Simulated scan of single mutants.
Amino acid sequence: MKSKFPFLLALAFFCLISLHALASVDTVATFSSAMQKEIKAVVITPKDYSESKDYPVVYLLHGYSGDYKAWLGQVPLLESYADQYGMIIVTPDGNFGSWYWDSPEVENSKYETYVGKELIEFVDKEYSTIQSREGRAITGLSMGGHGALYLAFRHQDTFGTAGSLSGGVDIGPFPENWEMKKYLGTKAQNPERWEEYSVMYQSNRLIPNRLALIISCGTEDFFYDVNVKLHEKLAYNNIPHSFMSGPGGHTWEYWADAVQYQLLFFHQYFEKGK
């Protein structure tokens, strides 16, 4: 009797190949005119990607000390989420600690301009995208959670929906942390600037129902209190939003779990716009 092992091995290999025949992952080099340098980003396109169709785009920002590879390296399921929801996911480089500001102190740190304008123009040119706010979302973790809301609040004509995962949404309580004073100057010497560059105070720009918002933070996270305060401020100002909290710290375990709910939230927003 012939052994079935070669057949089973071939079948297993085929299944393995099929399992990994998911989204396409590109590492692209973009040029920032504002900073006069090349910046990398990862672009994940769904497996059914076709230039005959326009896709929504989610911009996913990394945290302090991370880079453009961090999200996919820690959450490889992003590829399957891109497939499941038929979306493009872009993870740009925000430098070691830019906080996604156009820094008033560091001349060549213009990451609000880069992510909020230059990168979007590149992605819309090179990929088949929905080129309107109704087809764009932005979120991120920690520093990137701050960056996502900061950019979305300031560019409501660019993004239709936004989120934050364990975001540093109020920088005021942390004047000595994460190199922020390098980019803003010290809080003692620049108190008004520290308010202006904080998500908590940028929230005053929000137009009710203009942005679909989702905010997530673990209850053991050192940013939990400021996220609760932002949630309460938005509720007081009648800004509709989803606020998700539950057990979890400032960890990839929490972000890997929470990001899937945010991507579902964005997907539902995109579907409503069709």
Rank of each mutant, 00 (worst) to 15 (best):
G160R: 02
R154W: 00
R210L: 11
G116C: 09
L230S: 12
T161W: 11
I120G: 13
V42A: 06
S216Y: 05
Y150A: 15
D170S: 09
W255Q: 08
V226C: 11
Y85P: 09
L211G: 07
P247T: 01
R205W: 05
K233G: 08
N108R: 15
K125C: 10
E195N: 13
K229T: 07
V57Q: 09
Q262T: 07
Q74D: 02
P173K: 06
D157C: 07
V25M: 05
L119C: 07
S216T: 09
L149A: 04
K181L: 03
G246C: 03
K274R: 05
Y201S: 12
I214V: 07
L60M: 14
F243K: 00
T91I: 04
L165F: 13
P247E: 10
Q156T: 11
E105H: 03
N238F: 04
W178G: 04
V199K: 06
L263M: 02
K272C: 08
I239T: 10
I207A: 03
Y224E: 08
F96E: 03
T129A: 01
I215H: 05
K47V: 04
Y254H: 10
S32H: 10
L141T: 03
K4A: 12
I120R: 08
A34L: 10
K4Q: 05
D54N: 15
L22Y: 11
I88R: 11
W252N: 03
E196R: 08
M244T: 07
H241R: 02
G140S: 11
I89W: 14
K125Y: 14
D102A: 12
S109R: 05
T27D: 02
I89V: 06
P6T: 01
V226A: 01
M143K: 05
Y100H: 01
V42Q: 11
Y100E: 00
E79H: 11
P46M: 08
L234T: 13
A162G: 12
P56I: 05
R133L: 15
Y64Q: 01
M180H: 01
Y254R: 08
H146L: 14
A41G: 05
E196C: 03
Q202N: 02
F270Q: 12
P104I: 07
F5L: 15
I138R: 02
A148K: 12
L211A: 06
E38Y: 02
N190S: 07
Q268G: 01
S32L: 08
S98L: 09
L8D: 04
K2M: 03
Y183M: 12
V228N: 07
Y201C: 11
S166V: 02
A148M: 06
Q262L: 05
K53D: 04
I138P: 10
E126D: 12
G97C: 03
Y85V: 02
D93F: 06
K4R: 12
M35R: 11
A152R: 07
I239M: 08
L60Y: 01
